[in-house]
Computed example of a mutant assay.
Amino acid sequence: MFVLVLLPPSETKALGGEGPPLDLDALSWPDLSPPRRKLADAVVELAADVPASLVALGLSVRQQDEVSRNAELWTAPTVPALRRYTGVLYDALGFASFSRREREKAHRRLVVASALFGLVGGADPIPAYRLSGASTLPAVGGLRSFWRPTLEPVLAEIDDLVVDLRSGTYAALAPIAGAVSVRVVTEDATGRRLTVSHHNKMYKGRLAAVLVRLGREPSTVDGLARAVSRAGLTVEVTADRSLELLATD
């Protein structure tokens, strides 16, 4: 057993790449290939109608380049997922600063929840794309109803200690029974703890970086909390499978 960290994706993604075009057989969890193909084809088909794409994807006219990238989904170059996703959480994760050994651990330990691919391993080669977990596409409908029948059984087969850092939108695509949930909180002057929104992604990125660097593999939530605390983050077990991560910045 080892710790598997499930990350949310990001709307923003690094462009370009040096890898070959998308090959679904090269991605982790090959059982997801059929729905991945169906959804990718639906995204490419929708991209032929720019106005409809803007509506379905919740984009403005100034974001038409995102639609163009979707149109090139099958031919665009790829890069590993942990280099493709960007933004606050991934900046805080700091994958580019990892040593070679840490990168190898990150590729094994970090998994990204994806609206387009369901799940992608850290090293899985993917193109730039635009699709949100809250999207509804004409050809497949809402992504929650699309993914849940296939994705939920796949997640149920994972027997590692899963730390679920997904946002609500992506957690709704398929729950994970027994996963460790994390709530980022801050304390007011009275000591009352409040859910954090502004620093939520940053602290989850920092936590993911700590979990990548774990020396030993904790098998319990309490053991996980102790390991994270030794690394300098303040965490507390608040329920059987829940952690509170205190934001101090």
Rank of each mutant, 00 (worst) to 15 (best):
V163Y: 01
V163A: 00
V163L: 00
D164T: 00
D164Y: 08
D164H: 06
D164I: 04
L165P: 02
R166D: 04
S167C: 13
S167P: 03
S167V: 09
G168C: 14
G168I: 08
G168A: 09
T169H: 03
T169S: 15
T169W: 01
T169I: 13
T169G: 14
T169Q: 14
Y170L: 10
Y170S: 11
Y170R: 02
Y170G: 10
Y170K: 02
Y170A: 08
A171S: 10
A171P: 04
A171D: 12
A171G: 15
A171W: 04
A172Q: 09
A172G: 02
L173V: 06
L173K: 05
L173Y: 01
L173C: 14
A174F: 05
A174V: 08
A174Y: 00
P175G: 08
I176T: 07
I176L: 14
A177R: 13
A177I: 08
G178I: 08
G178E: 08
A179T: 05
A179G: 04
V180S: 11
V180E: 00
S181H: 10
R183P: 03
V185C: 06
T186M: 10
T186R: 14
T186P: 03
E187G: 11
E187W: 09
E187I: 13
D188T: 03
A189I: 12
T190V: 11
G191Y: 13
G191C: 09
R192A: 13
R192I: 10
R192H: 12
R193T: 07
R193H: 13
L194C: 09
L194R: 15
L194G: 08
L194K: 15
T195F: 06
T195K: 07
T195V: 15
T195C: 15
T195Y: 14
S197A: 15
S197M: 10
S197T: 15
H199T: 14
H199D: 11
H199A: 11
N200E: 09
N200T: 12
N200K: 12
N200R: 14
K201G: 02
K201F: 07
K201Y: 13
K201V: 09
K201N: 01
K201P: 02
K201E: 04
M202E: 14
M202R: 12
M202L: 14
Y203S: 08
Y203I: 10
K204A: 03
K204M: 01
K204W: 03
K204G: 04
G205E: 04
G205C: 10
R206V: 03
L207T: 06
A208Q: 01
A208E: 04
A208L: 06
A208R: 00
A208V: 08
A209P: 00
A209G: 05
A209T: 10
V210N: 11
V210L: 12
L211S: 01
L211T: 01
L211R: 00
L211I: 04
V212N: 02
V212T: 11
V212D: 01
V212I: 06
L214M: 12
L214D: 09
L214A: 07
G215H: 05
G215E: 12
G215V: 15
R216P: 08
R216S: 12
R216E: 13
R216D: 11
R216Q: 13
E217P: 01
P218R: 04
P218N: 07
P218H: 07
S219C: 15
T220V: 14
T220P: 07
T220Y: 15
T220N: 07
V221R: 00
V221Y: 00
V221S: 04
V221N: 03
D222A: 15
D222C: 07
G223C: 09
